[in-house]
Nucleic acid binder design. Structure first.
Lengths: 202, 202
DNA sequence: TTGTCCAGAATGAACGGTCATTCAATATAA
DNA sequence: TTATATTGAATGACCGTTCATTCTGGACAA
């Protein structure tokens, strides 16, 4: 009758999904345990068997959410043209986040990271990894003479990440502005940061 | 003995300033009325003579805050070179917001706008104005043959605003990343969106 | 198969604490 | 004295968390 490891993981996930639905609607602090209970179809006491506190649920949710973003970024369809691949990464990440209604959650995460040290630590760590990963990719492209960066790679990376985050959260306060044509603009901006290496030169 | 109009305005401002200090530290929902009372050196009952509810304080604060940003944007030192003027506006706005510790507040505003319709309305309205104002400036530059936009003016504007917001909120999750050299990168990206009109051509 | 037992899963009412809001009492200035 | 400003303890609602209780399904003896 004891639940298997797997069942416990599933249960936790179930709770986190319910929590997510509530967090989207009301944010972390306006969501009550009762909200989560109702959404999860589970009693308060039972939820506390899986998570020690609401705070822990928020933290687990944050970690999950960043995990989701991380995989979303890796799912960008790759292009043979390296410059296009970078443009795609920026564009796809932004549009994917928007289309999956992550705007509110990301805004919530930033706000929480601003005052909750534990959430801040989770986000900071994720951000550091993401930056390094992206820098590594740029470095590799340079090493293989496929591209040259016009500026410091870390700066470029951080600014592009900021651009994506900015686009996503701005969706919240631009309800009726059509962003579907933003790709060419993104392309111009991103492209300007790199010099493609002309094969003819070799 | 009745307070003059001016005194009432002052009192309200005093309360809003106290509220702001608390909001920076704890965010809207973790700030208690007691926090605000203490910070303002005023009793709870008295604050309720000036604001009907905590909710109203948050709304008034949001409006004030956006007002502050609006003026900050207009305070950008102007440059004779129009392209530089645009770059400056983007760069100055971002750095000014960062230096005045607005990151947490802006993140908080985005999060709140995501679920509180009244705050959303305030922010949306501000955003619309800001976009129009910026578009108007670009239009004027084009009309005077000082510049040509490579893309739709509204799109450019929205994306640049998003970039600024993204840079500012990203400061929260990049505690130890040095952004002081970001200007050249910003310059490259912003510049790429416009074609300066060469006087020789005329 | 059938009935009994029990560990672990789940429930939900109750508790203690916190917080926004109110209001009776007091201070103040004209 | 009086109208207004201010105080801060009291109020009532809400919320995270707990815990006494109930449910469930498999083990096992007969």
């Amino acid at each position: 009758m004891k639940l298997s490891e797997q069942k416990i993981v599933d249960k936790k996930l179930e709770i986190l999904e319910a929590a997510q639905a509530c967090f989207v609607r009301k944010g972390f602090h306006n969501t009550t345990m009762q909200d989560i209970c109702q959404q999860a179809g589970m009693s308060a006491g039972n939820i506390y068997r899986y998570f020690d506190s609401k705070e822990v649920i928020i933290e687990a949710f944050a970690a999950d959410e960043l995990q989701w973003m991380s995989t979303a970024i890796n799912d960008v369809p790759s292009s043979p043209d390296m410059l296009q691949a970078i443009v795609d990464t920026v564009y796809w990440t932004a549009t994917t986040l928007m289309e999956n209604d992550k705007s509110e959650l990301i805004a919530e995460l930033f706000a929480e990271a601003g005052r909750n040290p534990r959430i801040n630590a989770i986000y900071t760590k994720f951000n550091k990894q993401l930056t390094q990963q992206a820098c590594g990719m740029l470095q590799e492209l340079e090493d293989n003479d496929l591209l040259r960066c016009q500026h410091d790679k870390q700066l470029i990376t951080r600014i592009l990440i900021s651009l994506v985050d900015g686009l996503v959260v701005n969706e919240i306060v631009c309800p009726d502005f059509d962003m579907t044509n933003m790709r060419p603009v993104i392309e111009t901006m991103v492209t300007s940061l790199f010099v493609p290496i002309d094969p003819k030169v070799n």
